[in-house]
């Protein structure tokens, strides 16, 4: 991935929408972890906003107002589209249903074109409906600075999952374990989508501290749905040590969100549950701690960020 130096002219092109799709994707990936470029984009985006207003102003025809207001009269419901992923999720349930109900006389799995409504678990029905707006919301969130990379990752991941789910569904002899694996992976992706599309989503950017000046991270936090954390340029951990993420609130004691283990390139991605009844975070921090983590921070701070 291109470093910051090659990208410092990209922020302006980005806010003007003048990057080629490839460059835009690369820059969004960089933005997710670069506080400097994010700040630059933020400050330049006010210029883009002013450019939108800086055109000669003219009045649309009065007839247009009536046309616009009439056109929404018919459609009072928000759009709901059944995506391929929702269909795949539903057909997974169908496959499970088929497996669990072999024909009593032949011992064979009956071939049905439609799932038996009474045996499809309710949770699947709920998920098939709630999953779709989440995905759509995540896609629209891609507009927000830095979220593009997550949306792209999620789209890829959901695409992969669709293939796996379809395969599992098509094979009448698919083992329960395969189905369980596919379902767990799907649940993982869904929880990320869920966090990123939460209505109460808040973002905290964390900056590298003297122990790791190059490190950077971003946390997306939702009280109702959890915490998505992504970090880059974390130094490799010495043996017997781990990184630990802390959430600071109005309460005196920091709360441990969980442990982080960067890959060989220094990146770490994790989804954590939000502890119930936690007050709104005022800050987050990452410290280095003994393996297994500690109840209260003891080690050097590697990343720190304040909530807005």
């Amino acid at each position: 991935m291109a470093g910051h130096d090659q990208l410092d002219e990209q922020a302006g092109l980005y806010v003007l929408g003048a990057l080629t799709p490839t460059d835009r994707a690369a820059f969004e990936a960089h933005l997710a972890t670069c506080a400097d470029c994010t700040a630059e984009v933020r400050s330049l985006s006010s210029v883009a906003g002013a450019l939108a207003h800086a055109v000669p102003q003219s009045e649309p025809s009065p007839a247009l107002r009536a046309r616009v207001l009439a056109s929404v009269g018919a459609a009072t419901e928000p759009e709901v589209r059944l995506t391929a992923s929702a269909r795949a999720t539903a057909s997974l349930a169908e496959a499970e249903t088929r497996r669990r109900k072999p024909d009593a006389t032949t011992g064979r799995v009956p071939v049905r074109l439609k799932p038996d409504a009474t045996t499809v678990p309710d949770t699947t029905t709920v998920r098939a409906h709630t999953f779709v707006p989440w995905l759509a919301a995540a896609a629209s969130l891609a507009l927000a600075v830095g979220l593009g990379v997550y949306a792209a990752q999620l789209r890829t991941r959901v695409g992969d999952l669709e293939v796996r789910l379809r395969e599992a569904t098509l094979r009448a002899d698919a083992g329960d374990r395969q189905i369980a694996d596919a379902r767990r992976t799907a649940a993982d992706a869904q929880s990320q989508v869920a966090v990123l599309s939460a209505p109460d989503l808040a973002r905290i950017d964390l900056a590298g501290q003297p122990a790791a000046p190059q490190a950077a991270a971003r946390a997306f936090w939702s009280r109702s749905r959890g915490l998505v954390f992504t970090a880059s340029n974390l130094p490799a951990l010495p043996a017997g040590r781990t990184y630990q993420l802390w959430v600071l609130t109005a309460q005196p004691a920091p709360i441990s969100a969980g442990l982080l283990r960067p890959d060989t390139s220094g990146r770490a991605n994790a989804v954590f549950d939000t502890p119930p009844d936690i007050p709104r975070p005022t800050a987050m921090a990452v410290t280095i701690e003994p393996d297994g983590g500690v109840p209260a921070p003891t080690g050097d701070k590697y990343l720190v960020g304040l909530a807005n």
């Binding site: 649309p60 025809s61 247009l64 046309r67 616009v68 056109s71 929404v72 459609a75 928000p78 759009e79 707006p133 759509a136 919301a137 629209s140 969130l141 927000a144 209505p199 989503l201 808040a202 973002r203």
Partner: peptide, 21 residues
């Protein structure tokens, strides 16, 4: 004018998903 109509229709459909962040 078509664009104006499309934009306000979209605002109507997606108002619930609008995120002030």
């Amino acid at each position: 004018e078509d664009i104006v109509q499309e934009v306000f229709s979209q605002a109507w459909r997606e108002a619930a998903r609008y995120d002030r962040l």
